[in-house]
Amino acid sequence: QEIVSPECYIKHPLQNRWSLWFFKNDKSKTWQANLRLISKFDTVEDFWALYNHIQLSSNLMSGCDYSLFKDGIEPMWEDERNKKGGRWLITLNKQQRKLDLDRFWLETMLCLIGEAFDDSSDDVCGAVVNIRTKGDKIAVWTTDYENKDAITHIGRVYKERLGIPLKMTIGYQSHADTATKSGSTTKNKFVV
């Protein structure tokens, strides 16, 4: 009788179960009605099965989002785990949709599911990619904008993983500030 390696039949479990959400901008519906849960997964193999099956971000229509959040956290400011939180924001110019968008979003998801931020990964709620004509955005959401050490660690690791040059900076903004901003920019609470 042949002995089959457990590698062949045991999937690799992730630290967390994750939910992938899709948002499609239909102005005849409410914001919440436009948000749909695609699927949940908690193994490396099931992540790829889902990723290989769906459209790349760069193929989505303008106004669409993907959100990857820990199971039990909804991809909105109002969720208990988000309402005191904020995000590391990556803004992309129009050329970057072709050059960087899909690579950055995959790297972002790999950081999340692989728990790349060490103990600070506990502060991570999820990540969002927004496809927009004026410029796409990718953000990592964390749970509490006052957790400076965790946020800074996440920001440094994330910037390095995306290959963003040291001389360029990325900013962290609280959702409260984003929700109440008057102009087009939100002030940064932290920068790395």
């Binding site: 062949c8 992730l14 193999e45 790829w48 290989n52 790999l110 692989g114």
Partner: peptide, 20 residues
């Protein structure tokens, strides 16, 4: 401890054929 997976490990599974 936490189940941490680095990027190369994760990427190694993208086109892994299913075992039979």
């Amino acid at each position: 401890g936490k189940r941490q997976y680095n990027r190369d490990f994760l990427l190694g599974f993208q086109f892994m054929p299913a075992c039979v």
